[in-house]
Computed example of a mutant assay.
Amino acid sequence: MSKALDLVAPVDTLAMDYTRDFDAPVAALFRAHAEPELVRRWLGPYGLEMSIERWDFRTGGGYRYVHSDDNGTYAFNGVFHTVRPDLVIQTFEFEGAPDMVNIEFLWFEDRGERRSRLRGRSICPNTEARDALLSSGMERGMTEGYERLDALLPSL
């Protein structure tokens, strides 16, 4: 059984660290992050539609996607600085808060017995940006997105 999201944001840092285990091989977890048609099926909270304008998942590539619901649209973009099967380093920007660009690290870890772990670190430009993300419902969105990913992984 997959474990709950563990999100930690120490008060004295600009970082947010998280860990989430999955009942799936690490190759499937990585694939679910790599292929835009799969990303669209799990990334984000319940109730939002997602369109991907660009998803160039390679070192030097980039992305832009939009979530939408009855209340509006929420666009995000970034650059993939490093993409390899065990590590992705990217930037992340919510276009509703321009110039507040985070750098994010994603580690894909094989836990054996068809289990994997995703570890992440997001570093914000300042504490105000970090606190705004934390108060925006980000944790709920991540939790719900990873629940959707749990449902998708067995088919990969």
Rank of each mutant, 00 (worst) to 15 (best):
M1W: 05
L5N: 13
D6N: 13
V8C: 12
A9N: 02
V11Y: 07
T13Y: 03
L14N: 00
L14D: 01
A15I: 01
M16L: 05
R20S: 05
R20Q: 08
D21S: 14
D21A: 13
F22R: 06
F22Q: 07
D23W: 00
D23S: 06
L29K: 07
L29D: 11
F30D: 10
A34L: 02
A34R: 02
P36W: 12
P36R: 15
E37L: 06
R40N: 07
R41K: 09
W42F: 04
W42P: 03
P45N: 02
Y46V: 03
Y46E: 09
G47V: 06
G47T: 07
L48P: 00
L48M: 10
E53I: 08
W55P: 12
D56F: 03
F57V: 07
T59H: 05
R64K: 10
Y65P: 05
V66S: 12
D69Q: 05
G72S: 03
T73D: 12
T73V: 14
Y74F: 09
Y74M: 03
Y74V: 01
A75I: 11
A75Q: 08
F76P: 02
G78F: 09
V79Q: 10
F80N: 10
F80H: 12
T82F: 02
T82R: 14
V83T: 03
R84T: 08
R84K: 07
V88M: 11
T91C: 08
E93V: 11
E93L: 08
F94V: 09
E95Y: 04
G96A: 10
A97T: 14
A97F: 15
V101F: 00
N102Q: 10
N102K: 00
I103S: 04
I103H: 05
I103M: 11
I103T: 14
F105T: 15
L106F: 15
W107T: 15
F108R: 02
D110R: 14
D110Y: 12
R114E: 15
R114Q: 15
L118W: 11
G120T: 06
I123N: 09
C124W: 01
C124H: 13
N126I: 01
N126P: 02
E128Q: 04
E128F: 04
R130D: 03
L133F: 12
L134H: 06
S135G: 12
S136K: 05
S136Y: 00
S136H: 01
G137T: 01
G137A: 01
M138F: 13
M138N: 08
M142N: 11
M142E: 08
M142C: 10
M142G: 10
E147C: 01
A151Y: 00
L153G: 04
P154L: 01
S155M: 03
L156S: 00
L156A: 00
